[in-house]
Design a protein around this nucleic acid. Structure first.
Lengths: 166, 166
DNA sequence: AGCCAGTACATGATCCATCATTAATCGCAG
DNA sequence: CTGCGATTAATGATGGATCATGTACTGGCT
């Protein structure tokens, strides 16, 4: 931790990751938009609903699955409802809540989009990685997720901790 | 390639990556916003300018460096100019163009933000990865970038090619 | 029953990103 | 030097994401 900056290797890896992380979602978005008329967020919501029993979920379940903010989902659902992809339905079990349900058009859209999207992911990602690379890549992502789920330490915690303890 | 869907391993790796790729930028954004009052896009632009000779660049150079769309940068610069972080200056060498220049406030902001941002990146990413993991992670990202830079093949190209050839 | 903290969602404001369009200029072919 | 495609950049419109706030309901406690 001693040094302020990243090592050369780290810096190069970081910049490579940054570049990939900006290009890949953009490419996936473009592919979906052009081939299927769906945005990536729309696709992600539709996947969740299409995998659910009776093609419907409570909004908070979708949030949990996608790691989205509740507000983001709500706005997204409003737009998707306008587009006829989903439908909000009353939830009798819980008076506060609601169900989001896939419409026929929504089911059709996701059925058409999924194979092409998967083919794109395969072509851009998994066809390019060896099994070992894929495994390590996943490990690395998982390690980062673990770090993120720990109590968020603001920068400089070490000093703060020493000061508080001293 | 035969099958339409991803294998179990691939699917798990993909979902892990997706989760990481949504959580990590959000965490970096929050850290920058709270500790330094900067957004991640602002930070990225400031980094480019602070590394440039005379603290200024042509907008298209920033676009190239960040893989941004020209329009995105232009809007971003408008906001950053409003915030006093950068300054647009005339470019005598090319009558169409312009220079973006770091203001004193902008230089101060990036100098203050960089160490903390780096510490966060280190804490969330590189402290969690072994050298081997980091190296493979970089390889994987590079392989994906390579795939992205190749002529974008729409899904189903194989069939199309066969049909065209047949 | 009545209170109240917590949960589930929606909405408006604001900022960010992309698309389509416009405009000015450059550089070069004729 | 004139015309024209390519380059550089700004702008308005739209859709996306986040923050702050508001509302309605649940479930437990008294």
């Amino acid at each position: 931790m001693s040094d302020v900056w990243l090592t050369g290797d780290e810096q190069r890896a970081w910049r490579t990751y940054l570049q990939m992380s900006s290009l890949l979602p953009a490419a996936l978005n473009r592919q979906l938009q052009q081939d299927c008329g769906l945005t990536l967020p729309e696709y992600e919501v539709l996947v969740q609903l299409s995998e659910a029993p009776e093609h419907r979920l409570r909004p908070f379940q979708v949030c949990d699955a996608l790691n989205w903010e509740q507000s983001r989902l709500s706005h997204q659902l409003t737009r998707m409802e306008r587009r006829g992809l989903v439908l909000r339905r009353e939830c009798m079990a819980d008076g506060r809540g609601a169900y989001v349900e896939l419409t026929a058009a929504g089911a059709e859209a996701i059925d058409a989009a999924a194979p092409r999207h998967v083919a794109t992911v395969r072509g851009l990602v998994f066809d390019r990685l060896s099994d070992a690379q894929r495994a390590t890549f996943e490990e690395a992502c998982a390690a980062i997720i673990t770090a993120l789920s720990e109590p968020p330490r603001p920068a400089g915690t070490e000093e703060t901790a020493r000061l508080a303890a001293g």
